[in-house]
């Protein structure tokens, strides 16, 4: 790890000023940033520790019935917040399917959204990576790429976003509140992360010095609480990144789907919102056929970026299953194995 200066601003405005200086990085819990620094992948010369800025660690119910999650709210605290988990169960399930209890106890709301890809060629500083070093090339393209993207990738980068949390947030139209020197702005979560294109080094819409201060979910999102699941397929039963995941939420009335929300994880460099699939589901009757159609639509543009064609078919099946689980209804209590196919608690097919 390189040397760095350490500053601990006491307000958002101080933080934003400090963070704008070249070489600076915001430090919250550090569960991702310190890992990257130990690997020599991130080399900030100044850490701006935002971890103690007052006012960023609250979970507030908004007058319109939505919720505002402070950027410093710990992942575990959010997932175990009873009122939040009741109203946004698939967000809680996604959070609890990620990482380990220790990491969830430390990792923050803002930090989770900013975690970097787990692409091994990004982590291996001896490999070529356009994200680490623009113009260097991408060793993943002809390398070990079974876990890589099947949607939205470019020749410059085929990495995926590892966040579980961001997937239901994308599905539920979460809004990211950002503060910079120019003041506060808001960005829909679906626009927050960027696809790689020719500039995979630019991962989000944040300008230098801009700080996530909160994430908001609307009352509209809570209306899906009765039929909302996160499903995460992985190579270990726990403590593993998603191969493919899906957040599926339905509003069902009189046996028909009034509205659907669907997003995928593990398939692209951003949480992948499947709006065409949602549109097709709206008005349909919940069941095998409509879910299959939705799955096909969601993956219509998918193409393998390497030895990963299986992920396209897997993603279709994950969507169909997640919708099936959602249609069956959100369980009273989060399953023992959140997000796991082994925790559906009932039949796979209703």
């Amino acid at each position: 790890m390189n040397r760095f200066d350490y500053v601990r601003p006491s307000s958002v405005s101080e933080a934003v000023a400090a963070g704008a200086e070249p070489g600076s990085a915001f430090l919250a819990a550090g569960t991702n940033l310190l890992d990257l620094m130990k690997g020599g992948i991130a080399r900030p010369t100044r850490l701006v520790d935002v971890g103690r800025i007052p006012g960023l660690d609250a979970i507030e119910t908004l007058p319109d019935g939505g919720v505002r999650i402070g950027a410093l709210v710990r992942n575990a605290d959010l997932a175990y917040h009873q009122e939040f988990a009741r109203r946004f169960p698939m967000v809680a399930e996604a959070l609890l399917s990620g990482a380990s209890a220790q990491l969830r106890n430390a990792a923050t709301t803002g930090g989770n959204l900013l975690q970097r890809t787990r692409c091994p060629y990004f982590y291996d500083t001896a490999s070529a990576c356009n994200k680490r070093e623009p113009g260097a090339g991408c060793d993943a393209l002809a390398g070990e790429n079974r876990q890589h993207a099947v949607l939205g990738w470019s020749e410059a980068c085929i990495a995926t976003n590892p966040s579980d949390f961001a997937v239901p947030l994308a599905a539920l139209d979460a809004v990211v509140e950002i503060e910079g020197r120019g003041g506060r702005r808001e960005v829909p979560l679906t626009d927050f992360h960027r696809l790689p294109g020719d500039t995979p080094q630019i991962e989000t819409v944040l300008a230098p010095g801009e700080l996530i201060v909160a994430v908001r979910l609307s009352a509209d999102a809570a209306a899906f609480a009765g039929h909302a699941r996160y499903l995460k397929v992985r190579e270990r039963t726990s403590y593993a990144f998603a191969v493919v995941s899906a957040a599926a939420a339905l509003r069902i009335a009189d046996g028909r789907i009034e509205a659907a929300r669907l997003a995928l994880g593990g398939v692209a460099l951003k949480p992948w919102r499947a709006r065409e699939a949602e549109a097709a589901l709206a008005g349909a009757s919940p069941g095998f056929e409509s879910f299959q159609e939705a799955a096909a639509l969601a993956l219509a543009e998918a193409r393998p970026s390497g030895d990963n064609a299986y992920k396209i078919e897997l993603a279709r099946r994950v969507i169909a299953r997640a919708l099936t689980l959602a249609a069956a209804g959100t369980p009273e209590r989060l399953p023992a194995l959140p997000g796991s196919p082994f925790a559906s608690g009932g039949s796979l097919h209703d």
């Binding site: 380990s100 220790q102 990491l103």
Partner: peptide, 27 residues
């Protein structure tokens, strides 16, 4: 592992279990 991937360094900080390898003392 020193990278938050094994849990051998787990301690309680303010009553919560965390990986002490990914926590700066100064913070």
């Amino acid at each position: 592992c020193d990278r938050g991937q094994c849990g051998a360094c787990t301690i309680l900080v303010d009553g919560r279990r965390i990986n002490s390898c990914l926590a700066l003392a100064i913070s």
